[in-house]
Each structure stands twice: as C-alpha cells, then as structure tokens.
C-alpha cells in the first residue's frame, strides 16, 4: 500500500476506530474531571489536540535523529516527557497572553496536560508502531481530534444528565464511566470501515 494511503488510514483510525481515549483509556483523568462543561471541554480538547499534533512529530524527530544514533532509546520516556513539558509550558504562556478567559477557565488543568497520558501515549505508540514522520503527524492530529470529540460529546451528555435521576452512589465518575463505555461501543461500530494498524 502506498505510504500516503496508510498515513490517512492511520489518521482516520486514530479518530474513530482506535480512539486514544475510548480504546486505550488514555487521558481519562482530565476526561472525567473536566467534562462537566462544554466550554471548558472544548478548550482543553483544543489544547490537547494542539499539543499532540506538535509533540508527536517532534518526538519522532528527536527519537530518530538523537536517540537512535546514540543508542539512547531507553531514555525515551524522560526525553519525550521533557519535550512535552516544554511544549505545554509554551501553550500555557500563549493562552495566558492571548486568551485570558480561557486561561482562567482551564486554570489548574493546563499543568496537568503534561501528565495527560494521551500525549505521552501517542508518542510511545508512534515508536512502537514504527510510524514515519508524516504518519506520526497525522496520528497526533487524529488522536487529538478523537480525544476532543470524545470529551465534547461527554460534556454534552453530562449536561443532560443533570436533570436525570441517578443512584447517588453512581453519580459523578460512576455514570461518566458507563457513558464512556457506551461511547466506546458506539465508536466500535466504525471498526469495519478502517483496519487499525
């Protein structure tokens, strides 16, 4: 298969069939904590997409041109985390400078992007699945969009839930997880369309 086609297949697969949140459970912490409001979810989702799109190919370059030539592959966890942390810092400063309200509403969650499993996860998947540069870029973008889609859908459903009667012990995270389960099932419906590789 020509590599272009594969790259786009990876892109769509990472949004739907291989959604990083719903099939790999990555980024659950912020997903459960932030998905109460649509606006905040959109903001965080956009931030995650941005960071993922940039850091996945960036880490690809670092891995291919710094770690492999020097036989330092085992340091990839630390190096990837440093790259990601630097980028999150940049995102934070940009938001603070240009979008005060968004910065306010995201507040404490921005530093948490560094420890958002989805971001590091995408970089690690990229290494294990031996993606090319282009594929990593599209994979990062697709994973971000997939995550955004999931969290925005979740916040929409949770807004409806406020008026629903839920057993008290199931309120909050419990019901969110059940909804996430249904969403995962719904997304599985796409799996006949594109093979996940």
């Amino acid at each position: 298969m020509p590599s272009q086609v594969t790259a786009f297949a990876v892109f769509f697969a990472s949004i739907f069939t291989g959604n990083i949140l719903l099939t790999n459970y990555l980024g659950m912490c912020s997903f459960l904590a932030v998905s109460k409001e649509m606006k905040t979810s959109l903001g965080l989702g956009a931030a995650v997409t941005f960071v993922l799109t940039v850091t996945t190919p960036l880490n690809w370059l670092v891995y291919q041109y710094l770690l492999i030539p020097f036989n330092l592959e085992y340091l990839r966890f630390i190096v990837f985390i440093i790259v990601i942390a630097a980028f999150v810092q940049l995102t934070e400063m940009t938001l603070e400078r240009y979008s005060e309200p968004l910065y306010q509403s995201l507040g404490i969650f921005l530093p948490l992007i560094t420890v958002n499993c989805a971001i590091l996860g995408a970089s690690l998947f990229m290494v294990i699945r031996e993606y090319t540069f282009m594929t990593s870029l599209l994979f990062g973008l697709g994973s971000g969009i997939g995550w955004l889609l999931a969290i925005v859908a979740m916040s929409g459903i949770r807004a409806k839930l406020r008026t629903a009667k839920i057993p008290p012990a199931l309120e909050g995270p419990g019901i969110s997880l059940i909804i996430a389960g249904f969403m995962a099932m719904a997304f599985m419906g796409f799996s006949g369309m594109i093979a996940v590789s």
Binding site: L170, L177, M185
Partner: peptide, 16 residues
Amino acid sequence: PPGGFFILAIAIWVIR
C-alpha cells in the same frame, strides 16, 4: 475496551 469502562463503573458503584 467498553468492558473495562463498565466493570470499573460497576465496581465504583458497588463500593460506594
């Protein structure tokens, strides 16, 4: 994947 979500939710429910 959905199984993981459901079982965790049920576990949280039962414990709480």
